[in-house]
Protein backbone atom coordinates (compact mmCIF):
# COMPACT_ATOMS: atom_id res chain seq x y z
CA UNK A 1 0.00 0.00 0.00
CA UNK A 2 1.71 3.17 -1.13
CA UNK A 3 0.15 5.32 1.50
CA UNK A 4 3.12 6.82 3.16
CA UNK A 5 1.60 10.26 3.05
CA UNK A 6 -0.81 9.16 5.75
CA UNK A 7 2.17 8.54 7.96
CA UNK A 8 3.72 11.96 7.76
CA UNK A 9 2.66 13.13 11.20
CA UNK A 10 3.53 16.75 10.50
CA UNK A 11 1.27 16.90 7.51
CA UNK A 12 -1.49 14.55 8.50
CA UNK A 13 -3.74 17.16 10.01
CA UNK A 14 -2.68 19.98 7.80
CA UNK A 15 -3.71 18.45 4.50
CA UNK A 16 -5.55 20.91 2.34
CA UNK A 17 -9.29 20.54 2.46
CA UNK A 18 -10.13 21.37 -1.08
CA UNK A 19 -13.11 19.13 -1.67
CA UNK A 20 -15.70 21.14 0.16
CA UNK A 21 -18.71 22.94 -1.11
CA UNK A 22 -17.22 26.10 0.27
CA UNK A 23 -17.84 29.13 -1.81
CA UNK A 24 -14.80 31.33 -1.75
CA UNK A 25 -16.01 33.76 -4.36
CA UNK A 26 -15.40 37.16 -2.82
CA UNK A 27 -18.02 38.80 -5.07
CA UNK A 28 -20.81 36.80 -3.51
CA UNK A 29 -23.07 39.00 -1.42
CA UNK A 30 -24.35 36.29 0.93
CA UNK A 31 -22.67 34.50 3.81
CA UNK A 32 -20.17 31.78 3.22
CA UNK A 33 -22.28 28.62 2.84
CA UNK A 34 -21.00 25.84 5.11
CA UNK A 35 -20.28 22.41 3.64
CA UNK A 36 -23.01 19.77 3.46
CA UNK A 37 -21.82 17.86 6.56
CA UNK A 38 -21.39 21.12 8.49
CA UNK A 39 -25.03 21.99 7.73
CA UNK A 40 -26.16 18.49 8.73
CA UNK A 41 -24.39 18.85 12.08
CA UNK A 42 -25.97 22.25 12.58
CA UNK A 43 -29.37 20.78 11.77
CA UNK A 44 -28.99 17.97 14.32
CA UNK A 45 -27.93 20.44 16.95
CA UNK A 46 -30.90 22.71 16.19
CA UNK A 47 -33.42 19.86 16.29
CA UNK A 48 -32.06 18.52 19.58
CA UNK A 49 -31.79 21.98 21.16
CA UNK A 50 -35.42 22.74 20.30
CA UNK A 51 -36.46 19.54 22.04
CA UNK A 52 -34.44 20.47 25.08
CA UNK A 53 -32.11 17.50 24.58
CA UNK A 54 -29.01 19.60 24.04
CA UNK A 55 -27.62 22.67 25.75
CA UNK A 56 -25.47 24.55 23.21
CA UNK A 57 -23.39 26.11 26.01
CA UNK A 58 -22.49 22.62 27.21
CA UNK A 59 -21.28 21.75 23.71
CA UNK A 60 -19.03 24.82 23.69
CA UNK A 61 -17.69 23.75 27.05
CA UNK A 62 -16.83 20.27 25.74
CA UNK A 63 -15.09 21.74 22.69
CA UNK A 64 -13.12 24.16 24.86
CA UNK A 65 -12.08 21.35 27.17
CA UNK A 66 -10.74 19.15 24.38
CA UNK A 67 -9.24 22.01 22.40
CA UNK A 68 -7.55 23.82 25.22
CA UNK A 69 -7.40 21.89 28.44
CA UNK A 70 -6.95 18.20 27.68
CA UNK A 71 -3.97 17.09 25.67
CA UNK A 72 -0.70 15.18 25.63
CA UNK A 73 0.62 17.33 28.48
CA UNK A 74 -1.53 15.28 30.83
CA UNK A 75 -0.01 12.02 29.67
CA UNK A 76 3.47 13.54 29.80
CA UNK A 77 2.97 14.32 33.49
CA UNK A 78 2.08 10.70 34.13
CA UNK A 79 5.12 9.44 32.22
CA UNK A 80 7.50 11.87 33.95
CA UNK A 81 6.24 10.73 37.33
CA UNK A 82 6.57 7.09 36.32
CA UNK A 83 10.19 7.78 35.33
CA UNK A 84 11.05 9.53 38.57
CA UNK A 85 9.09 7.60 41.18
CA UNK A 86 9.43 3.78 41.21
CA UNK A 87 6.58 3.41 43.69
CA UNK A 88 4.27 5.43 41.43
CA UNK A 89 5.41 3.39 38.45
CA UNK A 90 4.56 0.15 40.23
CA UNK A 91 1.10 1.44 41.12
CA UNK A 92 0.60 2.69 37.55
CA UNK A 93 1.43 -0.69 36.07
CA UNK A 94 -0.89 -2.36 38.54
CA UNK A 95 -3.95 -0.10 38.09
CA UNK A 96 -3.45 2.86 35.77
CA UNK A 97 -7.12 3.82 35.80
CA UNK A 98 -7.07 4.46 39.55
CA UNK A 99 -3.65 6.11 39.58
CA UNK A 100 -4.36 8.60 36.81
CA UNK A 101 -7.79 9.33 38.30
CA UNK A 102 -6.00 10.43 41.45
CA UNK A 103 -4.10 12.91 39.28
CA UNK A 104 -7.44 14.22 38.04
CA UNK A 105 -7.45 12.39 34.70
CA UNK A 106 -10.42 10.12 34.34
CA UNK A 107 -12.37 8.85 31.38
CA UNK A 108 -15.65 10.62 30.84
CA UNK A 109 -16.85 7.59 28.91
CA UNK A 110 -16.11 5.24 31.78
CA UNK A 111 -13.21 3.55 30.03
CA UNK A 112 -10.25 1.91 31.69
CA UNK A 113 -6.65 2.79 31.06
CA UNK A 114 -3.73 0.37 30.97
CA UNK A 115 -0.15 1.60 31.01
CA UNK A 116 2.30 -0.46 28.96
CA UNK A 117 5.97 0.09 29.60
CA UNK A 118 8.67 -0.02 26.95
CA UNK A 119 11.76 -2.04 27.84
CA UNK A 120 14.91 -2.96 25.95
CA UNK A 121 13.13 -6.21 25.02
CA UNK A 122 9.70 -4.87 24.06
CA UNK A 123 8.42 -1.74 22.33
CA UNK A 124 4.69 -1.08 22.69
CA UNK A 125 2.50 0.57 20.10
CA UNK A 126 -1.20 1.43 20.27
CA UNK A 127 -3.90 1.32 17.60
CA UNK A 128 -7.66 1.03 17.43
CA UNK A 129 -8.42 -1.24 14.52
CA UNK A 130 -12.19 -0.84 14.80
CA UNK A 131 -12.52 2.92 15.08
CA UNK A 132 -10.31 5.32 16.98
CA UNK A 133 -10.46 4.55 20.70
CA UNK A 134 -7.76 6.58 22.40
CA UNK A 135 -6.91 7.67 25.95
CA UNK A 136 -8.64 11.05 25.66
CA UNK A 137 -8.06 12.17 29.27
CA UNK A 138 -4.31 11.68 28.86
CA UNK A 139 -3.67 12.52 25.22
CA UNK A 140 -6.68 14.55 24.07
CA UNK A 141 -8.16 14.02 20.60
CA UNK A 142 -6.22 11.62 18.38
CA UNK A 143 -4.30 13.01 15.42
CA UNK A 144 -5.70 12.46 11.93
CA UNK A 145 -3.26 9.69 11.06
CA UNK A 146 -4.36 7.64 14.09
CA UNK A 147 -7.90 7.67 12.68
CA UNK A 148 -6.89 6.82 9.11
CA UNK A 149 -7.58 3.43 7.55
CA UNK A 150 -3.93 3.21 6.60
CA UNK A 151 -2.64 3.34 10.17
CA UNK A 152 -5.45 1.22 11.57
CA UNK A 153 -4.79 -1.51 9.03
CA UNK A 154 -1.02 -1.42 8.92
CA UNK A 155 -0.18 -1.01 12.61
CA UNK A 156 -1.11 -4.60 13.31
CA UNK A 157 0.07 -6.12 10.05
CA UNK A 158 3.43 -4.45 9.68
CA UNK A 159 4.23 -2.43 12.79
CA UNK A 160 7.92 -2.16 12.01
CA UNK A 161 7.22 -0.65 8.61
CA UNK A 162 4.84 1.84 10.23
CA UNK A 163 7.47 2.71 12.83
CA UNK A 164 9.98 3.25 10.03
CA UNK A 165 7.53 5.69 8.40
CA UNK A 166 7.54 7.60 11.65
CA UNK A 167 11.33 7.57 11.66
CA UNK A 168 11.60 5.09 14.52
CA UNK A 169 14.06 2.26 14.15
CA UNK A 170 14.44 -0.25 16.92
CA UNK A 171 17.20 -2.77 17.54
CA UNK A 172 16.35 -5.98 15.66
CA UNK A 173 16.04 -7.94 18.88
CA UNK A 174 13.44 -5.57 20.35
CA UNK A 175 9.99 -7.09 19.91
CA UNK A 176 7.10 -4.83 18.89
CA UNK A 177 3.87 -5.44 20.73
CA UNK A 178 0.74 -3.82 19.30
CA UNK A 179 -2.21 -3.10 21.61
CA UNK A 180 -5.65 -2.84 20.03
CA UNK A 181 -7.79 -0.36 21.96
CA UNK A 182 -11.50 -0.78 22.59
CA UNK A 183 -14.23 1.49 23.87
CA UNK A 184 -13.63 0.00 27.32
CA UNK A 185 -9.84 -0.22 27.34
CA UNK A 186 -7.36 2.43 26.24
CA UNK A 187 -3.58 2.22 26.44
CA UNK A 188 -0.82 4.63 27.41
CA UNK A 189 2.70 3.74 26.35
CA UNK A 190 5.35 4.57 28.95
CA UNK A 191 8.41 5.17 26.76
CA UNK A 192 11.92 4.46 27.99
CA UNK A 193 13.54 7.27 29.89
CA UNK A 194 16.21 8.84 27.67
CA UNK A 195 19.85 8.57 28.65
CA UNK A 196 21.41 11.62 30.20
CA UNK A 197 18.32 12.68 32.13
CA UNK A 198 19.58 11.76 35.59
CA UNK A 199 18.85 14.53 38.03
CA UNK A 200 16.17 16.17 35.87
CA UNK A 201 12.99 17.05 37.73
CA UNK A 202 9.52 15.87 36.70
CA UNK A 203 8.72 19.08 34.85
CA UNK A 204 11.88 18.92 32.76
CA UNK A 205 11.27 15.25 32.08
CA UNK A 206 7.66 15.87 31.01
CA UNK A 207 8.93 18.31 28.38
CA UNK A 208 10.75 15.41 26.70
CA UNK A 209 7.63 13.26 26.43
CA UNK A 210 5.97 13.62 23.03
CA UNK A 211 2.47 12.58 22.12
CA UNK A 212 3.73 10.02 19.63
CA UNK A 213 6.04 8.48 22.24
CA UNK A 214 2.93 7.74 24.32
CA UNK A 215 1.21 6.10 21.31
CA UNK A 216 4.38 4.16 20.56
CA UNK A 217 4.96 5.70 17.13
CA UNK A 218 7.73 7.93 18.44
CA UNK A 219 10.46 8.15 21.04
CA UNK A 220 10.89 10.82 23.70
CA UNK A 221 13.09 13.79 22.87
CA UNK A 222 16.73 13.63 23.91
CA UNK A 223 17.74 16.13 26.57
CA UNK A 224 19.57 19.20 25.29
CA UNK A 225 23.26 18.87 25.94
Amino acid sequence: MGLDIAFQPRNACAMPHDHHDHDHDADHPHSHLPSDPALRVKALETVLTRKGLVDPAALDEIIDTYQNRIGPKNGAQVVARAWSDPEFNRALMHDATAVVAEMGFYGRQGEHITAVENTPETHNMVVCTLCSCYPWPLLGIPPGWYKSDAYRARAVREPRAVLADFGVSLPPDTAVRVWDSTAEMRYLVIPRRPEGTEGMDAEALAALVTRDSMIGTGLPKEPAT
Binding site: C13, A14, H17, P34, S35, P37, A38, V41, K42, L44, E45, L48, V54, L59, D60, I62, I63, Y66, Q67, I141, G144
Partner: peptide, 11 residues
Protein backbone atom coordinates in the same frame (compact mmCIF):
# COMPACT_ATOMS: atom_id res chain seq x y z
CA UNK B 1 -9.25 20.45 11.47
CA UNK B 2 -12.79 21.75 10.79
CA UNK B 3 -15.24 23.42 13.17
CA UNK B 4 -17.96 20.92 12.29
CA UNK B 5 -15.71 18.04 13.40
CA UNK B 6 -15.51 19.69 16.83
CA UNK B 7 -19.24 20.40 16.94
CA UNK B 8 -20.11 16.83 15.98
CA UNK B 9 -17.67 15.40 18.49
CA UNK B 10 -19.08 17.57 21.29
CA UNK B 11 -22.67 16.75 20.38
Amino acid sequence: SEPWHAQLFAL
